[in-house]
Design a protein around this nucleic acid. Structure first.
Lengths: 341, 341
DNA sequence: GTGTATAATGTAAACGTTTACAAAAAAATG
DNA sequence: CATTTTTTTGTAAACGTTTACATTATACAC
């Protein structure tokens, strides 16, 4: 059975293929009478347009490429849900590209763009600053791109983006600990080569400095954005000659590893160690104890990113590169306590 | 800047477009001399084939559609990693379709097939038994399909599949509890309308029956494959007039909610309640206490599913519908204890 | 009725590839 | 060197749509 084409429909309906095409794409331009004939023929033949041919002819794939560090991270899963719901509602499919936390070069992104054609890109993963600028120039056509979650460093305003104010949020979390009497506060960041948690580190450092608190050598550790990595980071923190009384983890998944290691070492949370996370993933409130963290409107971010991207794609003009800042919120649960003196 | 096409390359290289095409797809058939000229022209123009046109012409999209219940579930994330790695290595892209736990009808799958063209389908989500059989007949062309993780009921052998022996694994878990003296064992399954955890329930029931143990009314509760759902299920279990001494959860995520609720109720795990999960997601070993569970080789399953699917796609003939059974393993951690008498 | 504007339909080209077939060039054979 | 075989290249058709343009049918005005 070869795929039934528009030609077969035309023959059965006794009209030209142009009319059939118009029936589908622009029904007002065809007389009711013939429209019915064509509808019948479509039903009879079971015709469904060949999207390959359509994409080819129209030069539009209706596919969005989304580049993100890790699909396994519950936070990104939520962002993806937002992206997906908007995309589906507008007839777009998603092509997921996982970078596994490596920073992409402009060539890599460019290659993806030209090889697997997409109508636009959502960038949730870090890209080297250099690349960000060259991307569109390199690949023949310029492709709309929207950045989410502060994936690229904040001083690069080449592309529209939507994210929370990571620096402010991290400062807020740090200040919360300070306000409860903590002086020795450690920070577990993501990956050396990833920009994802850089702004949060900046916020932490800023808050510490403003409070006049020293950051000891070794208090800022790499958690590799993984459970294993954060367990090791926590271990080194616990062995530090000036052991911190609170640990701020740059995301919740690392906080999970961190809490596990602390409990394994026989310390009680929050009595002997306060923990604060970032993202408010769905596991945060069922941890033991429930995790104090920064809530990000993940799904909302995903939706907004897609709205902006689809606007650019369908209007054909840029929506402007100003970042859209969405609100965050410090969620106080029970993993943080006032420092016992 | 309009996209540079094969014609431009041909003109610059001073050959016909056919030769350029051959250079790309079948380099042996063209003389070294001209191959170099063409290569130069490609470099000079920055040409890259239009995949839209290629897909259209060849009638192949190099896209695999994967249908799964929820991308957020860490288990499926791991399966996806396997699928993705094989797909990427062979030049295929993935189109993800989330069913949000609803059972698909044949029409829904069929519609996806014909509208967004794909070369094959990986089915990890439940589909109604009826649909399973009709799918290929309905949508003009028959599309290769491979089922993973026992998504369809096991007595339907219409499609090739790869999965563990869910019934045996669940029996094993149940027997483990029985061997430790437990007599009152409850089960939290997934969703009424989803087949995903049906086999596990069967295994549990079989083991109970063989051991001559009664399953009280209300000991089998719906956890809705979510944390919230399992919390509620657990609450009802705790309030049962014959409170169980052990709970077997049909997946680890539900076990997380279950453990949380038990601890909230002030019971100690495993001293006062034993918990066993299923999947061995990456959080299982850092739960408090670490979760006893059934390990499934998730990534391996994903890889095998893709190997079979790609074989069918590229060889053009069926690989046979025998299910491929991969090994599972009971992982004993500390959420289970011998029943204190 | 004629003429004119408008609506509905048809014709054919175009999109960028791949590929069957024809033609030309090169190599092998006598 | 003529002939045959093999290799390399070119020509043109095809894939299933969409769409500019041409044509025909219909409605409207006088």
């Amino acid at each position: 059975m070869t795929q039934v084409s528009i030609k077969d429909v035309a023959k059965i309906a006794g009209v030209s293929i142009a009319t059939v095409s118009r029936c589908l794409n622009d029904p007002e331009r065809v007389k009711e009478n013939t429209r019915i004939k064509v509808q019948d023929a479509i039903l009879k033949t079971g015709y469904s347009p060949n999207t390959l041919a359509q994409s080819f002819r129209r030069g539009k794939t209706h596919v969005i490429m989304v580049v993100l560090p890790s699909v396994g991270d519950p936070f990104f899963t939520d962002v993806m849900r937002g992206i997906r719901s908007v995309a589906a509602g507008r007839g777009y499919s998603l092509l997921i590209n996982e970078t596994q936390f490596t920073t992409m070069t402009e060539d890599e992104v460019g290659a993806m763009v030209v090889s697997r054609q997409a109508d636009g890109i959502v960038l949730l993963a870090s890209m080297s600053p250099f690349g960000t600028r060259v991307l569109s120039a390199k690949s023949g056509r310029t492709l709309p791109i929207v950045v989410g979650c502060e994936a690229i460093s904040s001083d690069l305003t080449a592309y529209p983006s939507v994210h929370i104010d990571n620096v402010a949020a991290a400062s807020e979390a740090t200040n919360y600990l300070i306000s409860l009497g903590h002086r020795r506060i450690a920070f577990i960041y993501g990956l050396e080569q990833s920009l994802l948690t850089k702004d949060r580190e900046d916020g932490y450092r800023a808050a510490m400095q403003i409070a006049g608190l020293e950051i000891e050598n070794g208090w800022v550790a790499e958690g590799k954005l993984s459970i294993k990595g954060s367990i090791e980071a926590t271990r080194s923190l616990l062995n530090h000659h000036k052991r911190p009384t609170a640990i701020f983890c740059a995301n919740d998944e690392m906080a999970m590893g961190c809490m596990h290691e602390i409990k394994s070492a026989g310390l009680r949370i929050p009595e002997e160690m306060s923990i604060i996370g970032f993202d408010d993933i769905r596991y945060a409130e069922i941890m033991d104890p429930p995790l104090t963290t920064i809530y990000q409107p993940a799904e909302d971010i995903g939706e907004r990113v897609m709205y902006r991207l689809l606007y650019e794609i369908e209007e054909g003009r840029s929506v402007g590169a100003e970042p859209e800042i969405v609100p965050h919120r410090l969620i106080m649960r029970r993993s943080v306590a006032r420092l016992a003196i």
